[in-house]
């Protein structure tokens, strides 16, 4: 996919995030929107995955360690063909398989159940380790929130991955600088994030999370890096693509009402037309 096609796909993904959370009347749009471009790149360019062979043992794996961004994950799984798009409207509804947080037992394409922050990265390390032990060449990707970095387990997992040189593991930090109570910097600063991962023996790349040239180059570099895991620190805008949600802490875990839904969809429609 060229950059324009990627941008169009990411724009569709953002619409789906709005549709999902609007219909659920709850959920997490902010951190789903900030992750939308990277999720698009992972599923449409980077990862070796095929919805027709969803259980292929040699497929690449993705762990959404920031599990609350489930609307973003479900949207990309739907666009990729794992989930019928009509089901997106059932997010968080009773008896829907689209749970508030990703559930691998019920949702095709979900490689790990998540929702309790800080735990997904360890599972990703386990997957990467299994490829090494079994001499397989699949790759493993994990996406973390920047607030999530406050969990000690993240650093236990990172120390292990760095110490064991797991070069088939790429960790992406969605660095939108916000958590629930405010800015990560003020609450318990994880900065400098890049220096921390470097100290844990990661190869570190800083990028703009919404620039497909930089995203492409970073994943290529990660693939070519041998002997070390890679951490991509992706500077992002929480709520990206919907003007009133951008950089607004209040949109972490709140659904748009009807009026806000219409405005958000109109903005994304317009953005899509501009790309055509």
């Amino acid at each position: 996919m060229d950059n324009v096609a990627l941008k169009k796909t990411a724009n569709e993904l953002r619409k789906d995030i709005i549709i999902e959370t609007y219909n659920a009347k709850s959920g997490h749009p902010g951190g789903s929107l900030s992750a939308a471009d990277i999720l698009t790149y992972l599923y449409f360019e980077e990862m070796n995955v095929d919805p027709q062979k969803a259980k292929d043992p040699n497929r690449d794996r993705f762990v959404l360690s920031k599990g609350h961004a489930a609307p973003g994950l479900y949207a990309v799984l739907s666009l990729k063909g794992y989930i019928p798009s009509k089901d997106l409207k059932t997010l968080r509804h009773i008896d829907s398989y689209l749970q508030g947080h990703p559930d691998m037992k019920h949702t095709a394409g979900v490689d790990m159940s998540t929702g309790s922050l800080g735990q997904g990265i360890s599972a990703a390390v386990g997957m990467a380790l299994s490829a090494k032990v079994q001499k397989k060449d699949f790759r493993v990707y994990a996406m973390l929130g920047d607030g999530e970095l406050q969990e000690g387990q993240v650093w236990e997992a990172s120390m292990f991955a760095g110490s064991h040189g797991l070069d088939n593991l790429t960790v992406v930090v969605d660095n939108n600088n916000l958590q629930i109570d405010g800015s990560v910097k003020e609450i318990c600063s994880p900065y400098p994030i890049d220096e921390k991962f470097k100290a844990f023996n990661f190869h570190v790349i800083n990028i703009d999370a919404h620039d497909f040239d930089q995203i492409r180059a970073a994943f290529k570099e990660a693939r070519e890096t041998k002997g070390k895991p890679t951490a991509i620190i992706a500077k992002s805008v929480k709520g990206k693509g919907v003007s009133f949600m951008e950089n607004a802490v209040g949109w972490h875990g709140k659904a748009p009402n009807e009026e806000q839904y219409k405005q958000a969809m109109a903005e994304l429609e317009k953005n899509g037309e501009a790309l055509a």
């Binding site: 607030g147 999530e148 406050q150 000690g152 958590q179 629930i180 109570d181 609450i187 318990c188």
Partner: peptide, 29 residues
């Protein structure tokens, strides 16, 4: 508080007594 003060309502205490309110971050242990 561990970054859920708005949901638990612990943030109410911050409004009246910020000097004895500690936001630890997302780190329950």
């Amino acid at each position: 508080d561990a970054d859920l003060g708005s949901a638990t309502r612990a943030l109410k205490f911050k409004d009246v007594c910020p000097e004895r309110f500690l936001d630890i971050g997302i780190a329950e242990q």
